Amino acid sequence: MAFHDVRFPAAVSFGATGGPERRTEIVTLANGFEERNTPWSQSRRRYDAGIGLRAIEDVEAVLGFFEARRGPLHGFRWKDWLDWRSAPGRRPIGPLDQQIGLGDDATTGFALVKRYGDGPDPYLRPIAKPVAGSVRIAVDGDPVVEGAGVSVDHATGLVTFDLPPAVGAVITAGFEFDVPVRFDTETLIGSAASFAAGSVPEIPVVEIRL
């Protein structure tokens, strides 16, 4: 298996259903209290891009993409239209959106993350597939241009500085990102409603760990 650095057709994934999944083990004790634990440190997302009547070209694109990935064998990029950027709402993406680390005068590599929730225990989601050309970096609020002292690996989400940031320097970033996924089925069933339209009722995909 491998990861193909290509994106599922975004026009088809627009309108897909899905979202995060958590795994929680719950034991109810004799006194009615519960013990809850999770074997997952990270959530996993599931989607279904099943399409109703669409242009026959859309159906052909989906079938071709499925075959090129050999079904669920190879991973690929997926645009989650509900959650694909570092900034909230419609606010423009900026280099101060997400804190990704603190300088210690030794570390040069910092992984992109997105923070969910306020308070003392937010969820920090690893971002492994940023969109090329979208990443904005800042150190203590001062923008740093990619290629001029800092580089971004768009295959892993790792930001690397030529020189380690100073002790206590706040490293921040803004970005667009995709979700690494694979097809969660070995069969796609489609139909042609006419010479110009067709449908694939179910196209399940699931997030993968990298």
Rank of each mutant, 00 (worst) to 15 (best):
E67T: 09
V139C: 10
V159L: 05
A128L: 11
F66N: 11
A87K: 12
L73W: 04
D97E: 02
A61L: 11
G71H: 09
R54A: 08
G149D: 07
F161W: 13
V159P: 04
T160R: 15
V167E: 06
A87F: 04
F65P: 08
F76A: 05
F76V: 06
P165F: 10
G168A: 15
G64I: 05
A166I: 12
G157P: 02
D97T: 06
F183P: 02
A193H: 13
V179P: 01
R54V: 10
Q98G: 03
G133W: 06
P92C: 10
R125Q: 13
A68T: 13
E67I: 04
G149A: 07
G52D: 00
D162Y: 02
I100R: 04
F66R: 13
I171K: 05
L163Q: 15
G149P: 06
I189D: 08
A68W: 08
P92A: 14
V152H: 05
A197K: 13
I51S: 04
H74A: 11
P88L: 02
L102T: 01
G174A: 14
D97W: 09
V167C: 06
I93C: 05
S191I: 14
A169K: 03
G147C: 08
V144Q: 10
F66C: 07
I137Y: 08
R90M: 12
D97R: 12
V131G: 02
D178P: 03
R70L: 11
V131T: 11
G133N: 04
G89R: 14
G64P: 11
D178Y: 15
K79C: 12
A196D: 14
G103L: 13
K114G: 03
A128N: 11
G89F: 10
F110S: 05
D97K: 12
P88E: 06
G75F: 02
L158D: 03
D178I: 02
E60N: 15
L112T: 00
Y123N: 03
V131H: 06
K114V: 01
G119D: 05
P120C: 09
H154M: 04
P126Q: 12
H74L: 09
F195W: 13
E57K: 15
F66A: 07
A68P: 07
A169Y: 00
G89A: 09
W81V: 01
W84T: 02
F110K: 08
A197G: 12
E176A: 08
D83W: 03
L112Y: 03
G190Y: 11
G64F: 01
T185D: 00
D184S: 14
G64T: 15
R115A: 06
L63W: 08
E146K: 06
A87D: 03
G94S: 15
A111M: 08
S134R: 08
G157K: 05
G75K: 11
D80Y: 07
T185E: 05
G117F: 04
S134I: 09
I56R: 15
Q99E: 07
L158Y: 05
L102D: 00
V113A: 06
P180R: 13
D140Y: 07
I100T: 02
L112I: 01
G94R: 15
Y116D: 00
F175G: 01
G64S: 15
I189K: 14
V181N: 02
A196Y: 12
I51P: 03
T187E: 13
I100L: 04
L82P: 00
L53Q: 12
L53A: 14
F195M: 13
